[in-house]
Design a protein around this nucleic acid. Structure first.
Length: 507
RNA sequence: GGCCCGUUGGUCAAGGGGUUAAGACGCCUCUCUUUCACGGAGGAAUCACGAGUUCGAUUCUCGUACGGGCUACCA
């Protein structure tokens, strides 16, 4: 068997949707598993929808996720260029070839005429009439009016090339996920192959490039299923049938509430990201939130996406990328769409944070401290990370959970201790602070020992003193064990905070 | 409307003619911890419906219902 070659072929029209990343992921896993090649091809054949920055954004998303293509516009490769706009000249001859063979034709209908057609043929039974075998002879094209068409063409009238779909032919193909799928060509329209501006549509470009780039497997969203028969016919008409890739149409990712496929608007509405990274529309300035900026680890994001529509058939849910590469199989991908569950997504991130080393986490966590304007010294931060990571679901949680290690609390939640505060306790803490200064080896055990001994001496239950101590050091009722906090805070700072809050509390 | 795809707890899902129908998220209870988490134990909750095939259907077949996708000189 030939070397496996797969591709991700996005259109650079905006942010990268999480479903898009999953498509990349499945392509990538499949390629790596088979020692194949993963290609990024930019499908920018629609000049009207060109969005500046979108291509760079896609590349950066792939970098962040660690799903790096082997061949791409940036990297080049044996089948360059990898941008369809730069391959423009190669499509026309195939379109012409199809016309000559009678599989396609020239059409001269204007946009207005097409609109009129849709109105004219619209009935209750057929609310959206198509440019198909039933009506093509009533339109302006080289099939209905061969003579005139020749003249129009020589006069330089703009035209498109359309595929001539057979009236009634059964097309079937085997989908890696869905098994046998069949269609009758009579239901499909005569799709435009080559646009008036000389650019191919997706339909032509995808088969020409998949052929030229020797793609062996084509994974794409389920929304492409209805146009599959046209693509298959094209492979056949171009004489490349034996080289046609194997298809796999991936299930859609659905809205968590209600119905339909997940859109970026759902994220805004429900308060979770839909894009991989923040995306700002250059025209409107509108920002759509991304998983990266929300504080997701790429490992978790990938893991979560892998499980949305696929599972290994075991109970394992946490996978490294290498485990995914070895265990993934396209046949085990679900047929049905999956509703996106942000709670579960967060759970994956939490799991990944808990399992990651402080070395892994440090650079990412540091960024959030920098953003918050807190200088977090790295040696200390690494220790702090290990202490608090099980309490952090998203990366920004580290700041909430650990800023008190680097900064005295701006305010203290005194309510829980005020009620039970008394002179004895005040005395205890004043003396305790002093006693701390005599500790030689400043660590968890010594601090705890001094604390307990002193509590016993003053005849106060240690339990009644723990909560106040915590609030003095932390500012609130949260965080790791108090003595572990004191240890990392250091002697001076621990004493300082105890004294400060003891003073604050009065008698 | 037409065509295509789909349907196991609220969500992700395993399973596949005979099972107590796994597991996870979320929720609830208990436990550990004199904080918050983590961990541990438990609980509520599912085979869309109707026929057929069969000794027996969640599983196979056919219908129905429901959901989704497509129906552009967009991808």
């Amino acid at each position: 068997m030939d070397k496996i070659r797969v591709r991700f072929a996005p259109s650079p029209t905006g942010g990268l949707h999480l479903g898009g990343v999953r498509t990349v992921l499945y392509n990538y896993l499949f390629a790596r598993q088979h020692q194949g090649t993963f290609i990024l091809r930019i499908e920018d054949t629609d000049q009207n929808r060109f969005v500046p920055g979108a291509e760079d954004y896609i590349v950066e998303c792939l970098n962040w996720c660690g799903l790096i293509p082997d061949e791409s516009p940036l990297k080049g490769g044996p089948y360059a260029p990898y941008k369809q706009s730069e391959r423009k000249s190669s499509y026309q001859k195939y379109a012409e070839q199809l016309v000559e063979a009678g599989y396609a034709y020239y059409a001269f209908d204007t946009t207005e005429e097409l609109e009129q057609m849709r109105i004219r043929f619209k009935t209750d039974e057929n609310p959206s009439p198509q440019y198909d075998s039933r009506i093509r002879m009533q339109m302006k094209n080289s099939l209905s009016e061969p003579e005139k068409a020749r003249q129009w063409k020589s006069e330089g009238l703009p035209y498109v090339i359309r595929i001539r779909m057979p009236d009634n032919e059964e097309i079937h193909f085997s989908d890696l996920i869905r098994g046998d799928v069949h269609f009758n060509t009579g239901q499909s329209d005569d799709k435009v192959l080559l646009k008036a501006d000389g650019m191919p549509t997706y339909h032509l470009a995808v088969v020409v490039d998949d052929y030229l780039m020797k793609i062996t497997h084509a994974f794409r969203g389920e929304e492409w299923l209805p146009s599959a028969p046209a693509h298959i016919l094209l492979w056949k008409y171009l004489g490349w049938e034996k080289d046609m890739p194997q298809w796999a149409h991936l299930p859609l990712i659905l809205k968590p509430d209600g119905h339909g496929k997940l859109s970026k608007r759902d994220g805004d509405k429900l308060g979770f990201p839909v894009f991989a990274m923040n995306w700002t529309d250059p025209k409107t300035g509108e920002l759509t939130a991304g998983f990266r900026e929300r504080g997701f680890l790429p490992e978790a994001f990938i893991n979560m996406l892998a499980m949305l529509g696929w599972n290994a058939g075991t109970e394992q849910e946490i996978f490294t990328i290498d485990e995914l590469i070895s265990q993934f199989s396209i046949e085990r991908v679900h047929k049905g769409g999956a509703k996106f569950d942000f709670e579960k997504a967060k759970w994956f991130n939490h799991e990944w944070i808990k399992r990651s080393s402080s070395e892994r986490l440090l650079p990412d966590v540091k960024k959030y401290f920098d953003q918050a304007g807190i200088h977090a010294e790295e040696t200390l931060l690494a220790k702090v990370i290990d202490l608090v990571k099980e309490r952090c679901t998203l990366l920004p949680d580290f700041v909430d959970q650990a800023s008190f290690f680097f900064l005295r609390p701006a305010q203290y939640d005194l309510e829980p201790i005020k009620g039970k505060w008394n002179t004895d306790k005040k005395m205890f803490f004043a003396e305790f602070a002093d006693k701390l200064s005599s500790i030689h080896t400043w660590d968890f055990a010594s601090i705890e020992q001094v604390f307990k001994a002193h509590a016993e001496e003053k005849n106060i239950k240690a339990g009644e003193l723990l909560q106040p101590l915590r609030i003095m050091l932390v500012g609130g009722k949260f965080g790791p064990p108090v003595f572990a906090i004191a240890e990392l805070l250091g002697k001076e700072e621990t004493m300082g905070r105890i004294k400060e809050v003891t003073g604050l509390l009065g008698e």
